[in-house]
Design a protein around this nucleic acid. Structure first.
Length: 561
RNA sequence: AGCCGGGUAGUGUAGUGGUAGCACAACGGCCUUUGGAGCCGUCCGCUCGGGUUCGAAUCCCGGCCCGGCUGCCA
């Protein structure tokens, strides 16, 4: 991909890399990696990490690997592998032939483990999980050594071999690093390196029944791939001494681990556990539900890769725990789509309007500009006729102050069409407005006013006879509060789900939209940006997802009235 | 409580010894055939107390506050 390097703001990680480059550390190489565990779908928080790692590689003329950290077969699945590959690629990044799997290194890791055992730095422990926990001590009390801690190298080697051979049951033994049971850093109190897990691995099948723990595996993966800067999130800060210990004891190539703060977004939950819960308990329709903060959800919602990358650039990188205002994400997609999305007209909540002085059975084609932000986008024809639909919101029988749209006796402009004046309001037996009668000024064709008279409002419309019916899904924030994970009141995040996060309406769109391709994006003038649904839209029945509304300054004015 | 990390406008983020910049948000105005977009402007900040220095957001000491850590998860 092309990266405008000068536009990338600096941050403490790039500062470290600059310094390393100055000192010719790693012979001037920059090599990062994005190492997801294939146990869920990628979300916008991962995008931050992806943009960081791939972005740094691009900026410094380095490389970035895509590596699956598949060390726990009980949680990982091939489905996730595929979705992750698709999502990273969609975001615009490329790893050439450097797609790796931690599981490809299992043999090498085992050999390293044998090396550590031989050096007297690791041992097989027969303690149960509960006992190990007990022996570990607490944040304030020291741990104590396992009675198995001082087995001979020969015995450890034999036991480790038999662990691998499958002689023992799940949980009956672990291989532990022999470090320091009294370390104030709990991670250093003889951490487990291998656990016994008789489980089918999605790539290695039943070849292994012992699997490496994260701390043991991750540094080795980085080392094997000759990573220079191993960037991870803050919660691994306490693990860095362990990362360093393993690599130092082994005398292996030693990348530098650097931690940064993960992304939090207002009105959003980000943990895989919570997202999984939303999917499994049916609060949303799958991982790619357009309300989900997953990459696949954002894609289906209509977000562009560019907008997500811009967002990731603007939020910055630091070590401070922070929560980004979702308004920034929304700003980024509006900004991008404003430049590129073709404009069309669509009416979501139709109100029938009959233009009494317009001839029946007549139809004319009016010119409409495809994108005022892009002169090259050209123009298109929009059909106009005697009966049209306008938005219910664009008419008020009793208009409040500053309401510029249609009202009895008032004149407005129909976008690209004519000036019309409302002459009559038709209601049903419940007093609901069902139809408007208007007259039009033939001299105002195209929306111009030859006599120079001004109208305050311009509204959108579609021709009733020519418009296409479409299902439109109006999305709003999934969560109703800014900090749903806050738990201040001890409430579960699900109690903050927004009951109105999805409203489905049947609307009418102009005929130029016939056959619109899945995932194509449009601005419905005055309403917002909409994207053709990738799953449910067909030639016969269009389905649109609302990506985001336009900024609505009338709503603000109205609020203050 | 022990260890580790962090505190710069409302929210984020630059600035690493020369007196604080950017983005979003908010607010006001201009403009407009989208109450969109754009343009202009306004508001708002260095966690506190000492110290070093001609000079401190930056260095030192102490306090306060926030986050992470007691999986055979990652």
């Amino acid at each position: 991909m092309t990266t405008n390097e000068s536009s990338i703001p600096t941050d403490f990680i790039r500062n470290i890399i600059n310094e390393d480059l100055r000192n010719n550390k790693n012979d001037g190489r920059v090599h990062t990696r994005f190492p997801p565990e294939p146990n869920g779908y990628l979300h916008i928080g991962h995008a931050k990490s992806i943009c960081l790692n791939f972005g740094i590689a691009a900026q410094y003329n380095g490389l970035c690997n895509l590596r699956f950290d598949d060390t726990n077969p009980s949680k990982e699945e091939e489905e996730y592998v595929q979705s992750i590959i698709e999502d990273v690629r969609w975001l615009g990044f490329d790893w050439d032939d450097r797609l790796f799997y931690a599981s490809d290194y299992f043999e090498q890791m085992y050999e390293y483990a044998v090396q550590l055992v031989k050096a007297g730095k690791a041992y097989v422990d027969d303690l149960s999980a509960d006992e190990i926990k007990e022996y570990r001590g607490t944040l304030t009390s020291l741990g104590k050594e396992s009675p198995y801690r001082n087995r001979s190298v020969e015995e450890n080697l034999d036991l480790l071999e038999r662990m691998r051979a499958g002689e023992f049951e799940n949980g009956s033994r672990v291989l532990r690093a022999k470090i320091d049971m009294s370390s104030p850093n709990l991670n250093l109190r003889d951490p487990a390196m291998y656990r016994i897990l008789h489980a089918e691995h999605h790539r290695t099948g039943d070849k292994w029944c012992i699997y490496p723990m994260y701390d043991w595996a991750h540094g080795l993966e980085d080392s094997i791939e000759m990573i220079t800067h191993s960037i991870c999130t803050l919660e691994f800060e306490d693990h860095r001494p362990l990362y360093d210990w393993f690599l130092d004891e082994l005398g292996a190539y030693h990348p530098q681990q650097i931690e940064f703060a993960r992304l939090n977004l207002t009105y959003t939950v980000m943990s895989k556990r919570k997202l999984l819960q939303l999917v499994e308990e049916g609060y949303v329709n799958g991982w790619d539900d357009p309300r989900m903060p997953t990459i696949s959800g954002l894609r289906r919602r209509g977000y562009t890769p560019e907008s997500i990358r811009t967002f990731c650039e603007r939020i910055g990188i630091a070590k401070t725990d922070s929560t980004i205002d979702i308004a920034l994400l929304e700003h980024c997609i509006r900004e991008d789509l404003n430049k590129r999305a073709p404009r069309v007209m669509g009416v979501l909540r139709p109100l029938r309007v009959v233009i009494d002085n317009y001839p029946e059975n007549e139809k004319e084609e009016l010119d409409a500009i495809n994108n005022p932000e892009d002169p090259d986008a050209g123009i298109r024809k929009v059909p106009f006729s005697r009966v049209i639909y306008i938005e219910q919101d664009d008419f008020r029988e009793d208009p409040p102050k500053k309401f510029f749209r249609l009202a009895p006796g008032r004149e407005v402009r129909l976008r690209y069409a004519y000036f019309i004046t409302c002459t009559d309001v038709v209601k049903d037996e419940h007093g609901e407005i069902v139809e408007l009668h208007c007259t039009y000024d033939p001299a105002s064709r195209g929306g111009n006013s030859p006599d120079g008279r001004k109208v305050k409002g311009t509204i959108h419309w579609v021709s009733a006879d020519h418009a296409i019916e479409a299902e439109v899904r109006l999305y709003d924030r999934l969560l109703a509060v800014a900090n749903p994970a806050g738990d201040e009141n001890g409430k579960d995040f699900k109690s903050y789900l927004n009951p109105d996060s999805l409203e489905t309406v049947t609307g009418y769109v102009e005929p130029s939209l016939a056959g619109a391709a899945p995932l194509s994006r449009y601005q419905f003038e005055r309403l917002g940006y909409f994207c053709v649904d990738s799953q449910d839209s067909t030639k016969e029945k269009l389905v649109f997802n609302r990506t985001i509304t336009l900024r609505d300054s009338w709503a603000k004015i109205e609020q203050k009235l």
